[in-house]
Amino acid sequence: EPSQADLDALLSAVRDNRLSIEQAVTLLTPSSGGGSGGGSMDAKEILTRFKDGGLDRAAAQALLAGRTPA
């Protein structure tokens, strides 16, 4: 399960175009075949909204942490 520091680094990389959204989703869902963790939004949607400015960093982190299976 990614830590808050991992999520923060991942969000920074996506925002700075050092990591594509697809690459980030793969890192967030290493063994689930890329499927959502059952959250209301999947990781790709969360990351896309964050990059487009629709979500701030704290909200994106909380959503990603919340949808990651324990």
Rank of each mutant, 00 (worst) to 15 (best):
S12T: 11
S40G: 14
L47V: 01
A60N: 00
Q4V: 12
I21K: 01
A60L: 02
A9C: 14
R67P: 06
A65K: 08
S20A: 04
D16K: 03
E1A: 11
L19S: 02
A65Y: 06
G38Y: 09
A24D: 00
L10E: 00
P2A: 11
T48C: 05
I46Y: 02
T26C: 13
E1Y: 15
Q23M: 15
V25Y: 05
F50H: 02
L55D: 01
G54D: 14
D6M: 14
E1H: 11
G54L: 15
Q4L: 15
A62V: 10
G53S: 03
A13S: 05
I46S: 01
I46T: 03
G66Q: 11
P2C: 13
A24F: 03
A9Y: 12
R49D: 04
L55C: 02
S12D: 15
P30V: 12
L64N: 01
L7E: 02
D8Y: 07
A43L: 15
L7Y: 04
A65N: 09
G35R: 01
L19E: 01
Q4K: 15
T26V: 11
G39F: 11
G34W: 11
M41Y: 08
L47Q: 00
R67Y: 15
Q4E: 13
A65R: 10
Q61H: 13
T48W: 04
L63W: 04
S40A: 12
K51C: 04
T48Q: 12
D16L: 05
Q23T: 10
A13R: 05
D8C: 07
G33W: 10
R18Y: 08
D56H: 04
G34P: 14
A24H: 00
Q4P: 12
P69Y: 03
Q4W: 14
G66V: 08
V25W: 04
L19R: 01
G38L: 12
S32L: 10
K51I: 07
D42V: 05
D56P: 06
E22K: 05
P69G: 11
S3T: 06
K44N: 06
Q61V: 10
A59C: 08
D6R: 07
D6F: 15
R57E: 08
V14T: 01
P2F: 14
P30I: 11
A65E: 12
R18W: 07
L55A: 01
N17I: 02
L47F: 10
T29N: 11
G54R: 15
A43I: 14
A58H: 08
G34S: 11
L28A: 03
A13P: 00
S12A: 06
G54A: 15
R67L: 12
A70M: 07
L7Q: 02
L7N: 03
E1I: 13
V25I: 05
P2H: 14
L28E: 01
R57T: 07
G39E: 08
R18A: 08
G53F: 04
A62C: 09
S31F: 07
L7P: 02
D56A: 05
E22M: 06
L47R: 00
A13Q: 06
L10V: 11
Q4N: 12
L63I: 05
T29C: 14
A5L: 15
A58G: 08
E22W: 04
L47H: 00
P30R: 09
D8M: 10
P30N: 13
L63V: 03
G39K: 03
S31E: 15
L7V: 09
L63G: 04
G53Q: 04
R15H: 07
P69S: 08
Q23V: 07
R49P: 01
A62P: 01
S40I: 11
S20L: 03
L28S: 02
R57M: 13
L19I: 14
Q23Y: 08
L28Q: 00
I21S: 00
R67F: 14
D52L: 10
D6P: 06
G54N: 12
L28W: 03
A70D: 12
Q61Y: 11
T26K: 14
E22S: 07
D16T: 06
L10W: 05
D16G: 05
P2D: 12
D52G: 07
T68E: 10
L63S: 03
G37T: 09
P2N: 14
D52S: 11
L55V: 04
E1S: 13
G34Y: 06
L27E: 04
K44V: 09
D8H: 08
D16A: 06
R15S: 11
L28H: 02
A9V: 07
S40H: 11
S3L: 13
S36G: 11
L27A: 05
L47N: 00
D52W: 06
R57P: 05
E22T: 06
G34F: 07
T48H: 05
K44D: 05
L47S: 01
P69W: 03
I21Y: 01
T29I: 09
G39H: 15
A62K: 08
T48A: 08
S32T: 11
G37R: 03
P2G: 10
I46N: 00
G35S: 15
Q4I: 15
V25L: 13
L28R: 01
S32M: 12
A65F: 08
L10T: 03
